[in-house]
Design a binder for these strands. Structure first.
Length: 262
DNA sequence: TGTGCCCTGGTA
DNA sequence: TACCAGGGCACA
């Protein structure tokens, strides 16, 4: 599922295909998406030229020459399918942006949980979002300060986009494994040494995924990368040979090693 | 702070 | 055929 590395990769593909191109049509083919990408919103993009694609957390912010911003969140199963106008519609196509240069950008999203919405010039505010984990501003000190205010389990805090923007279930599990931290530990109870280890681990797993040829979780489909703990319930930990366990936190599965994550 | 909802393809 | 997966949000 798309987390920070996968969204960054998708944003890069969109940049390469559509920066400088002008929107000729916007179509929506799923009622759930039409609730946020309304007819008026779709019309507001017609004739506008795409000038930038930025990523903030798991969001893509697509800016047009008049200042309108198209916000896109892939949620669970979203992705871009980029091709030509003449191509057959991809499977699970939920929305389509057609550009005057012939490029077709389709949101494909099997579970249809993805969100697209348009913000008028200057209307978008992102102040509630947490720090970007790959930014230089994400230090052990700032992380420790943020965690000190959180009494909830560290795994749940890692998923909180107001604390850390872009980390999802997979990389949260993986980072906790790398840092050897038990997922149910209260965030505020972590020592500074553990916070530092976790900060480094988050950056390590995200950087590794971003640098991977297959870009993180996309590689799972290609069978080229296996996770250390995620989706490995009952299997053996590659570090200590203990059994990988699965628990539920916040209605999501958490995988961890019962031996080396304390 | 915890739970349920939105969604639907894949899996048991 | 029933259930599971889960990001983000509303609500209790």
């Amino acid at each position: 599922m798309p987390e920070l590395p996968e969204v960054e990769y998708a944003a890069g593909r969109l940049r390469a295909a559509a920066i400088g191109a002008t929107v000729s049509s916007v179509e929506v083919s799923h009622p759930a998406l039409a609730r946020t990408l309304t007819l008026a919103a779709r019309k507001s993009l017609i004739g506008k030229t795409l000038t930038a694609v930025q990523r903030r957390g798991k969001m893509q912010l697509i800016t047009f020459d008049d200042g309108h911003v198209l916000e896109v969140h892939f949620r669970m199963t979203g992705d871009w399918d980029i091709g030509q106008a003449s191509d057959a519609a991809p499977r699970f196509e939920r929305a389509r942006l057609q550009f005057s240069n012939g490029v077709r950008v389709s949101l494909v999203d099997s579970r249809a949980l993805g969100v697209m919405r348009v913000h008028a010039p200057g209307a978008l505010t992102l102040s509630a979002m947490g720090v970007e984990p790959l930014d230089d501003t994400f230090t052990a000190e700032t992380f420790a300060s943020a965690l000190a205010k959180q009494s909830r389990a560290i795994k749940l805090v890692l998923l909180n986009q107001r604390v850390l923007a872009g980390v999802g279930n997979i990389y949260a599990c993986e980072a906790l494994w790398v840092a050897r931290i038990h997922p149910t530990r209260a965030a505020s109870a972590l020592s500074f040494a553990r916070v530092k280890r976790l900060r480094d681990a988050v950056r390590k797993v995200l950087t590794a995924a971003t640098n991977s040829r297959y870009y993180g979780s996309a590689a799972v489909a290609a069978d080229d990368v296996t996770w250390r703990v995620y989706d490995r319930e009952g299997q053996t930990c590659t570090r200590c040979r203990s059994r990988i366990r699965r628990i539920t936190q916040g209605a999501r599965s958490t995988y961890y090693c019962g031996g080396c994550q304390r």
